[in-house]
Amino acid sequence: MTSSELFYESFKRCRIDQEFLESFLADFCKHNPRFSERFENIGLEQQTKMLKASIILIHNSVGLPSVRNSVRKLGKRHKDLGLNISEQELNEWFQSLLNTVKKYDPHYDAQVEQAWTETFDVGLKIMKKSVWSEPKCVTK
């Protein structure tokens, strides 16, 4: 089975439903208390909708170059909002995702973890670059 196939099978087993998303948020907040502070005025339902949208967006960037621009915009929006997201926080976000996948996928193993890592690599790199890129000077 290819890495892509492993990912999709695992993704289907996880179902990425409300329970999965709430578990993911709980894990992420446990490892990153700043997340709770940043989103304290946003309800749980809205947080999980945003979380699911970002998972799907970052996931889709691997195979759809047209989606990569949306990931760049997401990173820029995080930057423009002054959220001051560190590389460590993005890494923790992904680790919390893996922790949750491990909890919900009964077939989770090193190969499944590698498949998720490979699938999210492109999108996470775009996010990191968008969040920390310096504005470009335009010369005439």
Rank of each mutant, 00 (worst) to 15 (best):
S3I: 11
S4G: 11
S4D: 14
L6F: 02
Y8V: 08
Y8H: 15
K12C: 07
R13W: 01
R13G: 00
R13T: 04
C14M: 03
R15D: 15
R15F: 11
I16A: 09
I16F: 15
D17P: 05
D17W: 12
Q18N: 10
E19G: 07
F20T: 05
F20P: 02
L21R: 09
L21T: 09
E22G: 02
S23H: 05
S23V: 00
L25P: 00
L25W: 01
L25R: 04
A26V: 05
A26K: 08
D27C: 06
C29M: 12
C29T: 08
K30E: 09
H31L: 06
N32L: 01
N32F: 02
N32G: 00
P33R: 04
P33I: 02
F35D: 03
E37S: 08
E37Q: 07
E37C: 00
E37D: 09
E37T: 10
R38D: 01
F39M: 07
F39K: 11
E40Q: 12
N41Q: 11
I42R: 02
L44M: 13
E45W: 01
E45K: 09
E45Y: 03
Q46D: 14
Q46V: 09
Q46W: 02
Q47T: 02
T48H: 00
M50R: 11
L51Q: 11
A53G: 15
S54K: 08
S54G: 08
I55Q: 01
I56H: 07
L57P: 05
L57V: 07
I58D: 04
H59G: 00
S61K: 05
S61D: 06
V62G: 02
V62Y: 13
L64G: 01
P65E: 13
P65M: 04
P65G: 04
V67Y: 08
R68I: 01
R72W: 12
K73G: 09
K73N: 13
K73L: 14
K73V: 13
K73R: 14
G75N: 05
G75V: 06
G75A: 03
G75L: 03
G75M: 04
K76W: 08
K76D: 14
R77W: 04
H78T: 10
H78V: 06
K79T: 04
K79S: 08
D80S: 13
L81D: 06
L81K: 12
L81H: 08
L81A: 09
L83A: 12
L83M: 15
N84Q: 15
I85A: 07
S86G: 12
S86H: 07
S86D: 11
E87M: 05
E89T: 07
